[in-house]
Amino acid sequence: MSKIDSEISKIKFTCKDVRVAYSGKEALHGINMAIDDRGVTAFIGPSGCGKSSFLRVFNRMNDTIAGCTVTGEVYMDGQDIYAPSLDPVLLRARVGMVFQKPNPFPKSIYDNVAYGPRIHGLASNKAELDHIVEKSLQRAGLWEEVKDRLKDSGTGLSGGQQQRLVIARAIAVSPEVILMDEPASALDPIATARLEELIEELSQKYCIVIVTHSMAQAARISQRTAFFHMGDLVEYGLTTNIFTNPADPRTQDYITGRTG
């Protein structure tokens, strides 16, 4: 913890009055917050509180939803990611995302991981691509399990393996940030434990923002926690403080199980 505290001055994202609306109906009412460059930031809160909508602000995935509008300012390393000059396609190469349900493409394991590097031209030859694929799978902790069957379909893996495969796929384009939207909600406890270990390892190198329904998971893996309620950011701080000494009664009610 102390290591993270000392680096608190390093900020990855700064949000000013961010509002998200679906077909004119506001789901997030003006969020102001800063997200650390290293470590894991967890978003918690009851269903429909806007935490997933907020997560999708950081890689502009909300752009792909018809009728969704985002206002306010979001800076990544000081650069406005909603500026008209910024191309969301390039932003998404820097900000990777892992979804609730594992979504490997119906291609081979190799092609799944090679997808990003190929479209962004990250490898100039086959050997380089092989290297990227191997390195990404190793970093996602999947290499040992699949190295002999890279040609097999990615959809044939188990749920936990699939989720690590899509993490490898995201890592392969060397992002700076990895967003995770309830990545363990479709996994069994063993696969979840494996995934949490992986997240901890990755947090040494990447900025990780994770939405989770499991407060125990937030407590285990995150350094900072943000509690959302009905479209508002209620409380945000060090995870230890939020869980031991919440300032707001709504946070108190949620983490003790009285709401949500």
């Binding site: 995935m61 396609v89 390039l90 190469a93 995302m97 997808y115 990003g116 479209i119 796929r169 995201a170």
Partner: peptide, 19 residues
């Protein structure tokens, strides 16, 4: 979710469509 996965990797619409 396939399209989302592709967009999230920085693929364009036509790349997502064809690949």
């Amino acid at each position: 979710s396939m399209r989302d996965g592709s967009y999230a990797l920085g693929a364009t619409k036509s790349e997502t469509m064809t690949k």
